[in-house]
Design a protein around this nucleic acid. Structure first.
Lengths: 207, 207
DNA sequence: GGTATTGCTGACCGACGGGTCATTAACTAT
DNA sequence: ATAGTTAATGACCCGTCGGTCAGCAATACC
């Protein structure tokens, strides 16, 4: 009869609130989400929100950083597997990683950043330094290593690692806007990789 | 001494308001733009806004439709030049068209659609039917014609016209988020077209 | 010039939602 | 048990902004 009306869980709260906020922002976007919505999703009162996050904007930034941080770890993990030939690596772990992005939380982050980013340059910088910049550098280094090993030619692609990400980006936008129109994202990404490999491969293929 | 405090310009108003609204939305996004901002930009009182547009959302839709309509006309114009060989056409007018997009109003539309789209499915549908769907079909037909003429091989690219748009999409997002980090958009798009042409060209190149 | 028409103004309203704070009740320590 | 600490509540405040409307002044018509 007298279950406590709430529990004190100081340590778990931030994570729980952040998680609830991500879902709410994902559904309605930042501006359309009320702090109270997030609170009730997290099973918490509105007032409590302001004990852990000074403003709604602080909460927003915490959410983005939270997601991004995890993603970076995943990226690094993939890049450490390197006993394969360059082509095997591209067709294997790298392709898998790229295919996984459109179904991850990244599209939500992109959407939120595009909408609110211009008002939060520091957040965009954070995303740049921790995700985009690192990712591009990793691809660049990988291509360079392929050239040194004699597996790849040196081409314009060496300076345009973005070519690998282009289909991923389009898939993300497609997913956000046109989720009801089908696009075989996996096939799309595979085909782009075919184009790139055919272009940069050192040995001409003997049919 | 007695210049009229305002002029009656029933016919020009909608266009002027729409134009001012585009600029305001481009700068601050939809949610952060006040109706009164748009009004003063258009040199008009707030009340007048509601004589031409029932709500702020109606204004928003009108803005998007306005931009999109013009863009479609540009697209169609390009696709009517067809006396060139397929490869010349790709490297010429088609490439030029693609390069022009990141500096056009399209990025703003994309940003607005990504942010507000999910709340306006009808608007997304409109954009799909008038721009994306038409554009993709045009590219598909063009590739098909190339195959029939014996200029292109039939490949996976035939079913993935999105490959042409991928670098454009990434350039758009890049421009919105990372405008202070350079990306040679033109070179990027050119290189993607190189990849595609090398992949689908009928004759193997004699080095 | 006078009168009717209507494009246009700007003061006003109301509610929505971010942020506060006095109070309460769940824990902790002794 | 009991007092002390603080996590948590929720009623409240108040600025902002979408939307309204009564009146006004610029044009049209005669």
């Amino acid at each position: 009869m007298n279950e406590p009306r709430y529990q004190r869980r100081k340590d778990e709260r931030p994570q729980e609130i952040t998680e609830a906020a991500f879902e709410a922002f994902a559904e309605h976007g930042y501006a359309q989400t009320r702090v109270e919505d997030v609170a009730s999703r997290a099973g918490v009162s509105k007032g409590l929100m302001y004990l852990y996050f000074r403003t709604k904007e602080e909460l927003f930034k915490a959410v983005i950083r939270n997601v991004v941080t995890r993603r970076v770890e995943a990226l690094i993990r993939v890049l450490e597997q390197s006993e394969l030939s360059s082509e095997e690596f591209v067709r294997g772990p790298m392709q898998e990683f790229m295919k996984s992005i459109p179904d991850s939380r990244v599209p939500v982050v992109i959407r939120l950043l595009l909408a609110e980013g211009p008002r939060h340059p520091d957040l965009v910088d954070y995303y740049w330094e921790n995700v985009v910049s690192r990712g591009l550098d990793a691809i660049r280094r990988f291509l360079e290593r392929g050239v040194e090993r004699g597996e790849f030619r040196r081409t314009a692609v060496n300076d345009l690692p973005q070519l690998f990400l282009a289909p991923v980006m389009l898939s993300i936008v497609w997913k956000i806007l046109f989720s009801k129109r089908t696009l075989d994202t996996n096939h799309f990404i595979e085909t782009q990789i075919d184009l790139i490999l055919d272009y940069i491969r050192a040995e001409p293929v003997a049919a």
